[in-house]
Amino acid sequence: MAGEETPDFDVPVGLFQDLEDLKAHVARLTAQVGALSQSADTGPGEAPADETPDVGGEAAGEDEEQYPPFILLLDPPQYDDELRALIEWVEGVLVPGYLAEPSADARWCHLWFEHPPAVARLHACWLAWQELTDPATCGYTGPSVWHRDHLDPCIRELRASGGPFAGCTKGEHQIDHRMPGTVPSAWTRTGD
């Protein structure tokens, strides 16, 4: 059996891309296991000897990734900083690359950052974009996954007729359009 030749197979190009994706995924998982095993070496509430707690009281190693919190959980000035970065991404990447001219069927508000539901959805989409466009962490299929699982549903919800921009038209912005007014009730009597 040692003298057998390996058969000559034609390997599809997609298989190599899948292999690279798997390698990136294994590398990321290995790093996570290393970080978890390092934290398991210390007792609960203890920082590892080579780390010092930061101002917030949380220990963060140089190799440990820091994930940004969801924007709606932030208070000023962190919220303002995160919103500025989000605006740069939306206006610099998303609007010119993915959003065609708004219409009645595809709404968009130029003051989208004043609509909290839009800010929440776009921030989540941006966080996913940051993770899924780095081939070192997600391989070559990350952008495809981002489009399918994050961008398309986000834009579909934002631009829907009942979405956060439902009351906004071209050149006219309405932030309170979804707030119900007082509805007169048949059960109350006005002076007899």
Results as ranks from 00 to 15, higher is better:
residue 46 E to I: 05
residue 41 D to N: 15
residue 58 E to F: 11
residue 39 S to W: 14
residue 56 G to M: 11
residue 18 D to F: 03
residue 38 Q to R: 15
residue 55 V to E: 15
residue 53 P to N: 02
residue 26 V to G: 00
residue 22 L to E: 05
residue 22 L to G: 04
residue 35 A to K: 10
residue 49 A to N: 13
residue 35 A to C: 09
residue 54 D to I: 03
residue 59 A to V: 15
residue 27 A to F: 11
residue 25 H to M: 04
residue 21 D to M: 00
residue 55 V to L: 12
residue 31 A to G: 13
residue 27 A to K: 13
residue 50 D to S: 14
residue 34 G to V: 05
residue 17 Q to E: 13
residue 55 V to H: 09
residue 29 L to V: 05
residue 56 G to W: 13
residue 51 E to H: 09
residue 33 V to T: 07
residue 43 G to L: 08
residue 18 D to N: 10
residue 25 H to F: 06
residue 48 P to A: 05
residue 33 V to I: 10
residue 32 Q to M: 09
residue 47 A to T: 12
residue 43 G to A: 11
residue 27 A to W: 10
residue 43 G to Q: 07
residue 18 D to W: 03
residue 18 D to P: 00
residue 35 A to L: 14
residue 20 E to N: 07
residue 39 S to P: 04
residue 47 A to V: 10
residue 59 A to T: 15
residue 54 D to A: 11
residue 24 A to I: 03
residue 45 G to L: 00
residue 38 Q to T: 15
residue 33 V to P: 01
residue 46 E to L: 06
residue 44 P to H: 04
residue 61 G to I: 03
residue 51 E to D: 03
residue 29 L to A: 02
residue 22 L to F: 04
residue 60 A to T: 10
residue 52 T to K: 14
residue 32 Q to K: 12
residue 60 A to C: 12
residue 30 T to V: 11
residue 22 L to I: 03
residue 48 P to M: 06
residue 58 E to L: 08
residue 22 L to V: 02
residue 37 S to W: 06
residue 32 Q to H: 09
residue 60 A to N: 08
residue 19 L to S: 07
residue 39 S to I: 13
residue 54 D to H: 04
residue 20 E to W: 01
residue 25 H to A: 10
residue 38 Q to V: 12
residue 35 A to G: 12
residue 43 G to R: 10
residue 27 A to L: 14
residue 17 Q to K: 08
residue 51 E to N: 04
residue 21 D to N: 04
residue 39 S to M: 15
residue 30 T to R: 13
residue 49 A to T: 14
residue 23 K to P: 01
residue 30 T to S: 13
residue 43 G to E: 12
residue 49 A to Y: 13
residue 37 S to T: 15
residue 29 L to W: 02
residue 32 Q to E: 09
residue 60 A to R: 13
residue 62 E to D: 12
residue 39 S to Y: 14
residue 24 A to V: 02
residue 45 G to T: 00
residue 36 L to N: 13
residue 29 L to C: 00
residue 38 Q to M: 11
residue 29 L to G: 00
residue 46 E to C: 09
residue 44 P to S: 01
residue 61 G to P: 03
residue 56 G to A: 15
residue 60 A to Q: 14
residue 37 S to P: 02
residue 57 G to R: 03
residue 44 P to K: 02
residue 26 V to Y: 01
residue 62 E to I: 08
residue 42 T to W: 05
residue 28 R to C: 07
residue 41 D to P: 05
residue 42 T to V: 15
residue 48 P to Y: 05
residue 37 S to Q: 15
residue 28 R to P: 01
residue 17 Q to L: 12
residue 47 A to N: 10
residue 17 Q to G: 05
residue 23 K to S: 05
residue 62 E to T: 10
residue 52 T to R: 11
residue 51 E to L: 15
residue 27 A to P: 03
residue 56 G to C: 12
residue 45 G to R: 04
residue 61 G to S: 15
residue 46 E to A: 12
residue 43 G to Y: 06
residue 33 V to G: 00
residue 53 P to Q: 07
residue 52 T to F: 09
residue 38 Q to G: 13
residue 26 V to E: 00
residue 39 S to Q: 15
residue 22 L to S: 07
residue 59 A to F: 09
